[in-house]
């Protein structure tokens, strides 16, 4: 592990990556998230040690598109399962098994079912990673000493510096005005 206290050695001066605000309660986090959303920010996130009901609504996160990806993958698995058995059993290498037709659907259903489930599960897992932009090995927020409590007893909002509405003073003041303890993130 790299020592997080030591900044990466660069010739340039440290660059501002974003602003971090710490809150002590869920209510403060939810109230702050509503304000940040109303202010029109797009590139920001909230962090909490446990799932917080109502946080998605407060942040204005729209429902995930993942189910559609899973459905498409599942249907693809069905087609692959059907095609595979049709090609191998009925076309490429016809082989008579217990007097059944070469292409008989009841025998194909278990493989179709399993491949449908497999593809859907893979689609759910990989789709989740891609939509969450994971894996992400490093984020500037990890340099903050304060942020370590995000896994135990504190709540955070982080606004990225590349958000179109971001400006150093204004954004910090907004987060302070909703009761956050603000820290600038540099890397």
């Amino acid at each position: 592990m790299r020592d997080t206290q030591t900044p990466i050695a660069t010739s340039e001066s440290p660059q501002l990556c974003g602003v971090l605000a710490e809150f002590e309660t869920v209510d403060a986090l939810l109230a702050a998230a509503r304000r940040v959303r109303e202010a029109g920010f797009a590139r920001w996130d909230a962090h909490a040690p446990f799932p917080v009901h109502g946080l998605d609504e407060a942040m204005g996160i729209r429902r995930t598109r993942l189910p559609w990806i899973v459905l498409a993958c599942g249907l693809m698995g069905v087609l692959v399962g059907l095609g595979l058995q049709w090609w191998t059993n009925a076309v490429d290498y016809p082989f008579l098994i217990s007097g059944k037709p070469l292409f008989s659907w009841p025998a194909n259903v278990p493989v179709i079912f399993e491949l449908g489930v497999l593809f859907a599960a893979m689609g759910a897992f990989l789709g989740m990673l891609v939509l969450n932009r994971l894996p992400e090995w490093y984020h500037p927020v990890l340099t903050s000493e304060r942020f370590r409590r995000a896994t135990s007893d504190r709540f955070f909002i982080v606004i990225d510096a590349d958000d179109p509405r971001f400006d150093r003073r204004g954004t910090s003041e907004l987060l302070e005005s909703v009761g956050g303890a603000v820290e600038l993130l540099e890397a």
Binding site: V26, D27, L30, F50, P51, V52, H53, G54
Partner: peptide
């Protein structure tokens, strides 16, 4: 269980 601001 909701752990948030709203009591059941």
């Amino acid at each position: 269980m909701p752990m948030s601001h709203e009591m059941p």
